[in-house]
Each structure stands twice: as C-alpha cells, then as structure tokens.
C-alpha cells in the first residue's frame, strides 16, 4: 500500500482556560481535539462527522495549520510539516486548500469574482498576470461558472454559484488535498446535489483527495470512502462508509445514524429509533471514563471508570467502546 498523502498523529488542540484578576493565568486547557490520528490516501475522501462542538472544525483547521496544535504531528507527502514556517508553510498551503460553509461570508463583497478566484495565485506569486488570468478562467469553467462572469460581484450570484466560486478558489492552486468544511449545508436541496456532483467530478478529473467535515450524514455517505465519527474531541468510530453506516459498533454512531429523519413515511413509522437524551456535555469538564457514558443507552457501571481506546478489527474498522454493538 502506498504512503498516505496526509497523515496526522496524535493531534491535540486545546483552548486556554484562564483565571486571574489582573494577569490572566492559564489554569487549564479545554481539549477541543484530543489525540486524533488520521490518514488520507491519494484520491480518497475521508469524512469527519459529529455534532457541533465535537471538535471536527477545529481539527480541520489544525490540519491545514490555520490553528496551532498543542501536540501531535502532521506529515504531508512523507514530510513533517508540523512546525514549518514561512516559505515551507506557503508551499504546503498551495497544495492543501479549503472550502468553507458559508460562500457569502467567505467572499469579499467588493471584489470581482475573478479577482477573488485569482487572489490565491497573486498571494503565492504563481505565473505571469496573463497566465494567472488563464488559470482563473480554466478554474471557473471547470466548476461550471461562465468565465465571462469574471468581472461580476458576488451579490450577483445565487448561493450555489457562490459556492462554485469558493470551489474555484480552492482548485485554482491545483492542490492535492481540499479540506471541505460543511460544503453544502448552507444550500438548498436541489443545489446541494449540484455541488455534491461537482465535488465528485473534480475528484475524478483532478485526482484530488478530500477531507469532508459535515453534519449531514447522508451527504457524507454519498461522498466519503472512509468515515470518522467524533464525540467530544475524540474519534469514537472509524471505518469505511459501508462499515460505519451499515454496521456501526459504537452506540454513539448508531444513535447519530438512527437520528436522521428518513425521507420515507413508511420506514419512518416502522423504524426503531434511538433518541439520545440530554445535550453534549461541556468539554471543560468531560465525563469520567468513557465520555459518552452519561448519554449512552447501553452504558454499564464500569463505563464511568474505564476510558476505552480506539481498537481496530482486522479489516481496519475501529471503535472506542467496551461494549460495542453486535453487527
């Protein structure tokens, strides 16, 4: 098996908790991401799912070095880039780009969209002005925008088209990896499908690898080869889409999947649904033992004491649970 294009080991990202009247002392850290390992293979889509506050967005920002990490290392194409600065970091960012959730907020309203798409090329000083313009037009064409709209402003576009602009911005650099943070959740259903298809086409044509952060489990199922389920900063289950969706072993993954509303009234009525009670606990004061045990429908007394580690079956399917569900 070939070397993964992106590998992260033991990623831990915390935010300081401060106390003090005059001088703020750091008295602890909230672990938003707590020891996450991750491997992304060439041409593959890895999805990270979980509810808000589970750390998935922080993890994504950490992976592209938009967020400092407390511990762990990131390797890109076999090279450690955890502590890269300046030129080295810029090179890394050329090859690993990002798509954001809100296409409206991530575009400068006073910038023509051609300029917006070209901006990364300008920043990285790629090519002559004529070449840049050509690359921008190619990228626009590739994502299904009319290159003649180069001189228009973002407000002249619909939500779906704006997300296409965001994607053009990400692909114009000819990256190897794109980290997509909730790429379709701000869009209408019919437009979602357009963007999902576009992401699939780009992957096939350009050989891209994706990390997709999303809370919509159906979109994830569609896009992802492998899935990681996160809860309170930890990965609680990982495996292929097939494994996680059809035979979840962790009770949290199971509950998450069964919570999805089903667009089929007959199945919706007959389905046995696990509805989790309560809210996700504060990461400031995570529960003892297994972090999921206070909400877990199958928790045993010992779950409050032992913190289960991620363990893998022979096929790579892994879960962090002392009493996993039987498939």
């Amino acid at each position: 098996m070939s070397e993964p294009i992106l590998r992260a080991t033991g990623i831990t990202i915390g935010f300081p908790v401060t106390r003090g009247i005059v001088f703020q002392r750091e008295v602890g850290r909230v672990q938003a991401v707590d020891g996450v390992d991750l491997e992304l293979n060439e041409g593959e889509t890895l999805a990270i799912v979980g509810e808000s506050g589970c750390g998935k967005t922080t993890l994504a920002r950490g992976l592209v070095r938009l967020q400092g990490i407390d511990a762990g290392s990131i390797e890109f194409m076999g090279e450690d880039i955890t502590r890269r600065k300046g030129r080295g970091l810029t090179d890394f960012r050329r090859q690993v780009t990002m798509i954001f959730q809100d296409p409206i907020a991530s575009l400068d309203p006073r910038m023509r969209i051609g300029q917006s798409v070209q901006e990364p090329l300008d920043i990285h000083g790629i090519g002559t002005p004529a070449e840049r313009k050509r690359k921008v037009q190619e990228a626009m064409e590739r994502v299904g925008l009319n290159p003649e709209h180069y001189n228009r402003f973002p407000h002249e576009f619909s939500g779906g088209q704006r997300q296409r602009i965001g994607i053009a911005r990400a692909v114009v650099m000819q990256p190897r990896v794109i980290v997509c943070d909730e790429p379709v959740s701000a869009l209408d259903v019919s437009v979602q499908a357009q963007i999902v298809n576009l992401l699939e086409d780009l992957q096939r044509d350009l050989g891209l690898s994706y990390i997709v952060i999303a809370h919509d489990l159906d979109v994830v199922r569609r896009l992802a080869d492998r899935v990681k389920v996160m809860y309170l900063g930890r990965v609680v289950e990982e495996g292929t889409g097939e494994e996680v969706y059809n035979a979840p072993r962790h009770p949290y993954s199971h509950a998450l999947l069964s919570a999805r509303p089903v667009a089929d009234p007959v199945r919706a009525r007959s389905q046995q649904r696990v509805v989790l009670q309560g809210d996700v606990p504060s990461p400031l004061n995570p529960p003892s033992g297994c972090r999921f045990h206070p909400r877990c429908p199958v928790a045993q007394p010992s779950c409050a004491e032992h913190d289960p580690q991620l363990e893998h079956a022979a096929d790579g399917h892994g879960w962090a649970c002392a009493y996993p569900l039987q498939p």
Binding site: Q194, R222, A263
Partner: peptide
Amino acid sequence: SLPGRNLASERLHQIP
C-alpha cells in the same frame, strides 16, 4: 436529489 434515498445511483440527480 436526496443523497440518503439514492445511494445506488452513479450520480446524484440534480435539478439544473
């Protein structure tokens, strides 16, 4: 165009 209902299809249907 619902991804959850159309797992088998090669491409997700899209309304142009």
